[in-house]
């Protein structure tokens, strides 16, 4: 099980804060493809940064069960 987190505009478009994905040998890119197929968020995902287990990561990262993937839209703190 992989947990996928959404924030800000992405969270509003998806309508929830997180979803669970069950599958083996997925990369972040596979998660992006699944989410883009299920929700109308492809452009938002394209501009998002990626975090795996609370650290910035890249889209080729291979995920293992228990990982937490977060899509980080362009940040606007401060």
């Amino acid at each position: 099980m992989i947990e996928v987190l959404f924030f800000a505009q992405l969270q509003e478009e998806v309508g929830k804060k997180s979803v669970q994905v069950t599958a083996d040998d997925l990369t972040v890119n596979d998660i992006i493809a699944k989410c883009a197929a299920e929700y109308d968020i492809k452009e938002l995902l394209d501009e998002a940064m990626i975090a795996v287990n609370e650290e910035y990561s890249n889209r080729n990262t291979v995920l293992t069960a228990g990982d937490v993937v977060a899509f980080i839209p362009p940040v606007s703190g401060g």
Binding site: F7, A51, V75, S76, G77, G78
Partner: peptide, 20 residues
């Protein structure tokens, strides 16, 4: 680099802001 987001609430709508 800090994952924090600002949402503007205006008289005529709202928006999550991006790159500042």
């Amino acid at each position: 680099i800090v994952p924090i987001w600002k949402k503007e609430h205006w008289e005529d709508g709202t928006k999550w802001l991006g790159d500042q």
